[in-house]
Design a protein around this nucleic acid. Structure first.
Length: 602
RNA sequence: GGCUCGGUAGCGAAGUCGGUUAUCGCGCCGGCCUGUCACGCCGGAGAUCGAGGGUUCAAGUCCCUUCCGAGUCGCCA
């Protein structure tokens, strides 16, 4: 079958836009053949473009050569058709254009197609690898088209809203200086400076702070960022941030303007009204109540501390953690005892072990009785006190984790409450619970480095009342940092920054950098701050995560046109890949074969 | 790096206790059909059961190794 060019063909509109009001018009559409149904003397072709499907019809009155051309069409052929829009004899209520069809008088075959490796269907069940290898076909599917379009509309709202609020969009470099704090950098070798490397930005953090110093006052950017770390459903090595910074603001000012943005974007894209202001919760409260710094507040199952009740009990599994400085805490799956028979609870025991918990104690209150994994080790009074503290009554399941490290208890129970809620179908993706988590700890201790590191980043300002603690009580020192959390996902995070060289110096000292080290790594920022930096702060959102939640997707891959798979490769182009020796020579690079061999063996 | 789950025609799946020619749906090819729209009917092709090794008279099925994917822990200031 020979293909044709467009010649004098002019598209009159998109397939999905034609309805009864256009009946009688001569129209011209083009797109891909979704399906051809040949009834012998009648042929129907579903023509698809990004707006939807329009049925083309061919009958005995159709010019013969057009009819024969239609008979030769197959899936994914690209055609242009002209004809008269008619009301259908038998209508299809499932289709937006189901009342009409195009009675074709002219048909051009613009491109044929091989049989695609999978059908272009809305609810395709194909494995991710295949979809990504043929991503250009995967993206033809209506739900992918919708997701990518939604992403476009979100970024449009971002630009509109922040423009209205006086923000300038300013681009920052992609080739930057590697900074050792934080995630692993992607490195780019320099040809003009042999042996030296650029790094791709993990975020434009320092540049945007310098823009504040330059007086731009309100900055925004939709910007690609890079982190060479392992992938997750919500983490890609390259991802997009909505990056913002403002001068002369407090944390509350920043949060307020973000609430305006989120309210706007949810209204415009999903027609969902979200209530502002969002609840604001200190980090310590989030951990104590939910065991997480990004709690999903769509359901209860809050944590409950029973350390004081069991610290002197005769059961070492409970008393041990408390005496070693940890805690024993529980969650109560209120009213769900029937959903968690013994077998299911055993699976929960395995579940918490992935979070390094040593085990899971439980009590099941059903039919007026109590069965429990631990009650025989405790006195009657102790047992009663625990259930009372848990607020447990008949029909409940109480799940208890104790550990010498609070972080293990929090991680295990925090994950467990979400896991159980998921199993119980309590997570409605159409309900949106926003939450600000604020007053994060300034520091955390890094076992790997054997020192304190900044939890957020080293430019974050401490709470005014905690400045003294930079020296005296690092773990008790809180930062002017805040995260925006939506349904248990960290959508974004930010802080008020340090704006004086004195405070920045104190901070570097607290992190254990000598003056020389600080100068070498962050000299540009330290020097700049000698020249009058305004108080400033900002936030950065994960655009991919925002779009994922708004699209109801399970993974950010679904809202990224060309994402990477778990080993950070890209199946369609098969990158990363080897390069020519000539390219290496030009950069003065040699592969260390001994190291590569060892890596391959591992 | 660890753990869990998965890999069977182009796609999605089934395959029991190890036993004849590996099953089903979609798609594909050929034929028929004047109102289909997940069209229908008739016929057909298409599989080194991810790869390698082992046990066995016999392996998709059991064992070992390995590759690939997904989820997750570590990691991600």
């Amino acid at each position: 079958m020979t293909t044709e060019t467009l010649q004098n063909f002019r598209r009159s509109g998109y397939c999905g836009t034609y309805t009864m009001k256009n009946v009688g018009e001569t129209i011209s559409v083009c797109g891909w053949v979704q399906r051809q149904r040949n009834k012998g003397a009648l042929i129907f072709v579903d023509l698809r473009d990004r707006t939807g499907i329009l049925q083309l019809s061919f009958n005995p009155d159709t010019p013969r050569e057009v009819f024969e051309k239609a008979a030769g069409l197959h899936s994914e052929y690209v055609v242009a058709a002209t004809g008269i829009l008619r009301e259908r004899e038998s209508k299809n209520p499932d289709l937006a254009t189901g009342d009409v069809e195009l009675e074709v008088t002219e048909l051009r075959l613009l491109a044929a197609s091989e049989t695609p490796p999978f059908e272009i269907l809305e609810d395709l069940q194909a494995n991710d690898m295949l979809r990504l290898k043929y991503r250009y076909l995967d993206l033809r599917r209506p739900n992918m088209q919708k997701a990518i379009q939604t992403r476009h509309r979100v970024t449009k709202v971002v630009r509109d809203y922040f423009d209205e609020q006086g923000f300038f969009e300013i681009e920052t470099p992609m080739l930057t200086k590697s900074t050792p704090e934080g995630a692993r950098d992607y490195l780019v070798p320099s040809r003009t400076h042999p042996g030296k490397f650029y790094a791709l930005p993990q975020s434009p953090q320092q540049y945007k702070q310098l823009l504040m110093l330059s007086g731009f006052d309100r900055y925004m950017q939709i910007v690609r960022c890079f982190r060479d770390e392992d992938l997750r459903a919500d983490r890609q090595p390259e991802f997009t941030q909505i990056d913002l910074e403002m001068s002369f603001v407090t944390a509350d000012d920043v949060m307020e303007i973000q609430e305006g943005f989120l309210k706007r974007v949810f209204k415009e894209i999903l027609d969902v009204d979200v209530q502002t202001p969002f609840p604001r919760m200190p980090y310590s409260e989030a951990m104590a109540r939910y065991g997480s710094d990004k709690p999903d507040t769509r359901f209860g199952f809050e944590l409950c501390d029973i350390s004081d009740l069991v610290k002197d009990c005769g059961f070492g599994v409970f008393s041990g953690p408390v005496s070693e400085g940890g805690s024993v805490r529980l969650i109560n799956l209120k009213g769900f005892a029937a959903d968690f028979p013994r077998k299911k609870i055993d699976k929960l025991v395995d579940f918490v072990k992935t979070y390094r918990a040593k085990g899971l104690a439980w009590a099941r209150l059903i039919d007026g009785g109590v069965t429990s994994s631990y009650q025989k080790f405790l006195t009657e009074g102790e047992n009663a006190a625990i259930l009372e503290r848990a607020g447990a009554s008949d029909g409940d399941v109480v799940l208890i984790v104790g550990d010498a490290k609070d972080e293990v208890v929090f991680a295990a129970l925090g994950a467990l409450r979400v896991h159980c809620a998921k199993e119980l179908n309590l997570l409605d993706p159409k309900v949106f619970h926003f939450l600000w988590v604020k007053e994060f700890p300034m520091f955390e201790y890094s076992e790997e480095d054997g020192r304190f590191v900044a939890m957020h980043h080293p430019f974050t300002a401490p709470l005014d009342e905690d400045v003294e603690k930079l020296e005296t009580d690092k773990l008790g020192c809180r930062a002017k940092a805040y995260d925006i959390v939506l349904n248990g996902t960290e959508l974004g995070g930010g802080s008020i920054r340090i704006n004086t060289p004195q405070m920045q110096e104190t901070m570097f000292k607290a992190l254990g950098f000598s003056a020389e080290e600080a100068q070498e790594r962050f000299g540009h920022l330290i020097n700049a701050f000698q020249y009058g930096a305004p108080p400033h702060g900002g936030i950065a959102y994960g655009l991919d995560r925002l779009c994922m939640l708004m699209a109801g997707a399970e993974s950010i891959r679904d809202v990224i046109a060309f994402p990477k798979v778990q080993n950070a490769s890209e199946p369609m182009t098969a990158c990363p890949d080897v390069v020519d020796q000539k390219q290496l020579d030009e950069l003065g690079l040699a592969l260390n074969l001994a190291v590569l061999e060892k890596k391959t063996e591992e």
